[in-house]
């Protein structure tokens, strides 16, 4: 399943990565190498095999409904790139 520059651009957009036009050709070549390697998976006989998401067959532990998390603003606000009145700032979003 080879991908071209156009697909690379689409995928980069989905992943919010900026790929310049002069990079896409080289990048798609690299990605095609990886995908070609990964395509060995198509040889596997997986008929009737259930996907395995976690190595161990265990279930989700559940937490009691109690508020125990502290207010961490004093710790996190100083490392934020842009804040005002306790909010994180981003360029104006129009819905």
């Amino acid at each position: 399943m080879a991908i071209d520059s156009k697909v690379v651009a689409q995928v980069a957009h989905l992943a919010c990565l900026q790929v310049d036009d002069n990079e896409t050709a080289a990048l798609s070549e690299r990605l095609n190498d990886i995908l070609a390697m990964v395509d060995q998976l198509q040889q596997a006989d997986v008929e009737g095999v259930a996907p395995l998401a976690h190595p161990l067959d265990v279930s989700q532990p559940l937490r009691d409904d109690q508020v125990t998390e502290p207010d961490v603003r004093e710790r996190v606000m100083p490392i934020a790139p842009a804040i005002e009145e306790g909010c994180f700032l981003v360029p104006r979003v129009i819905e």
Binding site: M1, L31, V38, V46, P51
Partner: peptide, 23 residues
């Protein structure tokens, strides 16, 4: 990130991600 995004994207999930989990 690009490989992973592609492997999960519509139309390729079964061929890549699901199959990898089966393997």
């Amino acid at each position: 990130i690009l490989v992973g995004t592609y492997a999960l994207s519509a139309g390729y999930y079964d061929a890549y991600y699901r199959r990898a989990q089966q393997v």
